[in-house]
């Protein structure tokens, strides 16, 4: 489902401030697997997510998503790939605070060919699953941390993605919310979604249903 072959990622290549973010990364995630990326802050986890999401291009090597290389595709195709196949849950949720819950979660589908009624149906279903129906018109800035996280998850699921990327999703949450998040992730896995999760929270390593754990440090897989 996801494959990185001998990938290097170098920023400001050839300049005095050149920085190697990733070095010779080889990684493979199969369909319906939950893979945990472990590493300290700045180790390169987010760079791997950016590569998989097609937001940056590798300096060397190849990135293959669902059988297709995205290493050299134009930005507009990478955007379509994100819209069709990926759902991303960011560390700080990255919601637009003055938009309502509904507007935030439907944001990925606005440029799509789906009709407004189709989008509304999808949104209502997800909001019901994540018990956010009563907050549908509330601006995100008025929500609690847990509610914001569920909105971020809802937004990642609105396009019925095959792959979910979750970057440090529990970093700012208390114990109860972490438990709730783990339930949601478990359900998603049960539904056949491939999940790549970056975290240095030891609780994830202890989960039985994690299929693969990859340790990363200084831009290299250990």
């Amino acid at each position: 489902m996801i494959r990185l072959d001998s990938v290097d990622l170098i920023f400001n290549s050839g300049l005095p401030n050149e920085m190697t973010a990733l070095k010779n990364i080889n990684l493979s995630v199969e369909k319906n697997e939950l893979t945990l990326l472990r590493g300290a802050s700045g180790s390169g986890k987010s760079s791997i997510f950016s590569l998989i999401a097609g937001l940056v291009k590798p300096s060397r090597g190849d990135v293959i998503i669902d059988g297709k290389s995205i290493a050299k595709i134009p930005d507009s195709f990478a955007a379509l790939m994100r819209r069709d196949k990926l759902g991303v849950i960011f560390q700080k949720f990255n919601l637009i605070h003055d938009l309502s819950v509904y507007d935030n979660i439907t944001l990925p589908l606005i440029p799509s060919a789906k009709t407004t009624s189709e989008i509304r149906l999808s949104a209502e279903k997800i909001l019901t699953d994540l018990t956010l129906t009563n907050k549908i018109n509330t601006a995100v800035r008025y929500l609690s941390g847990g509610e914001q996280q569920r909105v971020a998850i809802a937004r990642a699921l609105i396009n019925q993605p095959k792959i979910i990327l979750a970057d440090e999703p529990t970093a700012n949450l208390d114990q109860a919310l972490i438990e709730s998040f783990l339930h949601i992730i478990h359900d998603l896995k049960a539904k056949g979604i491939t999940i790549l999760l970056a975290s240095h929270d030891p609780r994830f390593s202890e989960l039985e249903w994690v299929d693969q754990v990859i340790d990363i440090a200084h831009g290299e897989i250990q």
Partner: peptide
């Protein structure tokens, strides 16, 4: 900037 970044990350193209 943040809003544009979010849009791109969730699948908006530059032309969108």
């Amino acid at each position: 900037k943040r809003e544009i970044g979010i849009m791109k990350a969730v699948g908006w193209r530059v032309e969108d």
